[in-house]
């Protein structure tokens, strides 16, 4: 555990909690892509199956359970409790266009052709693109609520901090996982355009809206 890994995890946690609180406090999931949230629930479910087979640390177990629990709670709020506020017409990204190629790639490029490892690899690849339905939705509506942009900022920051964690681990531990690194780079790049808008608009007190 190094400072980048810890702040990365906390940034990820902050993002998840911000989104849950936003939906709960406003009693609305307007502007939130339910499809991205389904993908994140799928990411955590397929990645954390090792909870059933091995124990790593108290921290590890608790964080995994919180991530999974919050992901399903978010999906529940969007599709059940506050379903009336869900903007399904603008959330029109086709999930199969992500899940099917990612599943194929996980079977072809992985560290070990075993059930748990393929699902782990699938989750790494899927996470890197899981935000696309949300970004697609924002590009369709042309705007995002400020609290939604805070969520996206912390979610993007988390993987960027993991990149620094991997650089640290490479130098100090000789640890190196090409699959995680490449997927992490792709994931971080997808947020770059958003980061730019966040810094130039949202942090200066303006609402995030895209030019028509």
């Amino acid at each position: 555990m190094n400072i980048f890994r810890l702040t990365g995890d906390l940034s990820h946690l902050a993002a998840i909690i911000i989104l849950l609180l936003k939906i709960w406090k406003t009693r609305s999931c307007a502007g939130i892509s339910g499809k991205s949230q389904i993908l994140f629930a799928l990411v955590f479910t397929t990645r954390y199956l090792d909870l059933l087979t091995s124990f790593i640390s108290f921290y590890n177990t608790i964080m995994k359970l919180i991530y999974i629990g919050c992901a399903y709670a978010t999906v529940y709020l969007i599709y059940m409790k506050f379903k009336a506020t869900y903007d399904g017409n603008h959330d029109s990204f086709r999930l199969e266009f992500l899940v099917v190629p990612v599943g194929g790639l996980a079977c072809l490029v992985n560290h070990d052709f075993s059930f748990l490892e393929i699902l782990w690899t699938f989750s790494i690849y899927l996470e890197s693109v899981a935000i696309l339905p949300q970004l697609f939705m924002i590009s369709k509506t042309g705007e995002a609520e400020t609290i939604t942009t805070h969520y996206l900022f912390f979610l993007g920051l988390y993987r960027a901090l993991y990149l620094f964690n991997w650089i640290w681990r490479f130098y100090f531990e000789g640890f190196f996982d090409m699959i995680a690194i490449v997927a992490g780079v792709v994931q971080t790049i997808l947020y770059c355009d958003f980061f730019y808008l966040y810094v130039t608009k949202v942090l200066k007190g303006k609402k995030l809206s895209l030019p028509a």
């Binding site: 995890d9 790593i56 640390s57 590890n60 560290h111 070990d112 490892e117 699959i179 995680a180």
Partner: peptide, 10 residues
Amino acid sequence: DDVVTDKDEL
């Protein structure tokens, strides 16, 4: 074994 991925990272 280096084929098993790191399950400590989240």
